[in-house]
């Protein structure tokens, strides 16, 4: 017997089940989406993320996103993802910002050196101060290798929390090989329980929440 066959055999024997036997009905998880109006969501999101050491900005429109990003960068070099929203905001046009990486080696080289990585965010989760990035729209390394991460989150994508996320996107793997929840800057307390930020990932995270109404009207 192959290991596969043997393991299936052991499992079925242990459970007294036959191959092809239908499973019992699966219990439904508790999914309850709280009602939180958008403005309260932003406040909740900002409160959570700031408590973790993140920074949250509010932009009325894409022009302001560009301004805020420029203010954070202060001319420093950055790698920018191919998210159309960033392009519409003119982020790749900012001094020092490089974007449009199509091949991995050059992306990797740029990310390894740049002090900032700039991405969009597919979703935000207000209850936990989380942003969600998916590899279908955002290169993974941009939010990982540079010591600081700037993410632009459209307000309409700011969900209440996990329950709403799994309702909106019950099968995250369908369209993307990687879906990552990012909740604050990288941290560790492995030495004497002392909090250290930026152990492997970014030590700083800036999230610019932009009102999409303005974004699309622009």
């Amino acid at each position: 017997m192959t290991p596969r066959e043997e393991i299936f055999d052991r499992v079925r024997k242990a459970l007294g089940r036959k191959p092809g036997e239908k499973p019992a009905p699966v219990p439904e998880p508790r999914i309850r989406i709280p009602e939180i109006p958008p403005e309260r969501r932003v406040a909740l999101f900002a409160g959570r993320l700031e408590a973790l050491g993140g920074k949250v900005y509010r932009a009325a429109g894409l022009a302001q996103v560009r301004e805020i990003a420029a203010g954070i960068l202060e001319g420093a070099a950055a790698v920018c993802s191919t998210d159309p929203l960033l392009e519409k905001a003119g982020i790749p046009g900012l001094t020092g910002v490089a974007g449009g990486f199509q091949d991995e080696p050059s992306l990797r080289a740029a990310c390894a050196l740049a002090p900032f990585g700039i991405t969009g965010a597919d979703y935000g989760l207000a209850e936990t101060g989380t942003i969600v990035t998916r590899s279908a729209s955002e290169a993974r390394l941009i939010s990982l290798l540079p010591p600081a991460h700037i993410a632009v989150l459209p307000l309409s994508r700011l969900l209440t929390g996990l329950d709403e996320f799994y309702t909106v996107l019950p099968k995250p793997a369908d369209a993307s090989s990687s879906t990552v929840f990012i909740t604050g800057p990288s941290r560790s307390a492995d030495i004497e329980m002392i909090l250290v930020r930026g152990v492997h990932g970014p030590r700083v995270i800036h999230v610019i929440v932009v009102d999409e109404e303005h974004a699309t009207n622009r």
Binding site: R48, L52, S81, T82, F101, Q102, E104, L107, R108, L125, E127, T128, G129, T130, S135, A136, A139, R140, L141, L162, P172, A173, S176, S177, S178, T179, V180, F181, I182, T183, G184, P185, S186, R187, G201
Partner: peptide, 20 residues
Amino acid sequence: LLTVYTSFLSGPRRGREADG
């Protein structure tokens, strides 16, 4: 409430994905 990173990974990088 959540750890800093929660990764949900399925399969190797796909066609249009930049890395992975």
